[in-house]
């Protein structure tokens, strides 16, 4: 955890990071995704952060809400590429729901973290059929045990998703209701 905090501090102090407050209400994420939020979030923006918008309540070292809007066929769901031991996790437009959940599992375990799926179920996001999944994650870098939830749906071959994770004992229970509200509010323009 200290290492992550240190990294975040370096990024902020170096002036590369901007933080914007996201207020209660409806928000567009990209061109086609809208979400409705209750309570303010912090939107972190920094170079090289990947295709998702990163929001947090407590700080990136503690909790992260990743919002993906319009990921195209062949596009990676993370920043950077693959290397000797890290496969690049890319979305394919013909992925089935279980494969989409596995895509995010692959992304979260690229660094050797341990992931366990605890639920995968169908969900309706407006007129679209989507998926919702719950998971636990032991973060390799500091052994912190996290809990998480994800929502995803595809439209016109593009992927729209939300992924949240936070330490399981305090922060996850504190924020999960807000995150579920955001997930259920996801609407994708046709």
């Amino acid at each position: 955890m200290k290492r992550i905090v240190l990294l975040c501090a370096v990024l902020v102090l170096s002036g590369c990071v901007s933080i914007a407050k996201i207020e209660t209400g409806q928000h567009a994420v990209g061109d086609r995704l809208t979400v409705n939020i209750e309570g303010a979030w912090n939107h972190i923006n920094a170079p090289g952060m990947g295709p998702a918008q990163v929001w947090t309540m407590e700080g990136m070292a503690v909790d992260q809400l990743l919002l993906y809007s319009g990921i195209r066929d062949g596009q990676a769901v993370h920043s950077g590429g693959g290397n000797d031991n890290q496969k690049s996790m890319t979305y394919r437009s013909n992925m089935q729901p279980d494969e989409i959940a596995a895509l995010f599992e692959g992304m979260l375990t690229r660094d050797g973290s341990r992931y366990r799926l605890s639920k995968l179920e169908p969900v309706s996001l407006g007129d679209l059929k989507g998926l919702r999944f719950e998971y636990s994650l032991v973060r390799k870098i500091d052994n912190v045990q996290l809990a998480g939830v994800g929502y995803a749906a595809t439209s016109r071959g593009e992927l729209f998703a939300l992924l949240y994770m936070a330490p399981r004992l305090v922060f996850y229970p504190r924020h999960i209701a807000r995150v579920e509200h955001i997930g259920q509010s996801m609407r994708i323009k046709p």
Binding site: S118, L120, E121
Partner: peptide, 9 residues
């Protein structure tokens, strides 16, 4: 199984 709801769907 954790994905039984999805499989049933």
């Amino acid at each position: 199984a954790p994905d039984q709801a999805m499989i049933k769907s």
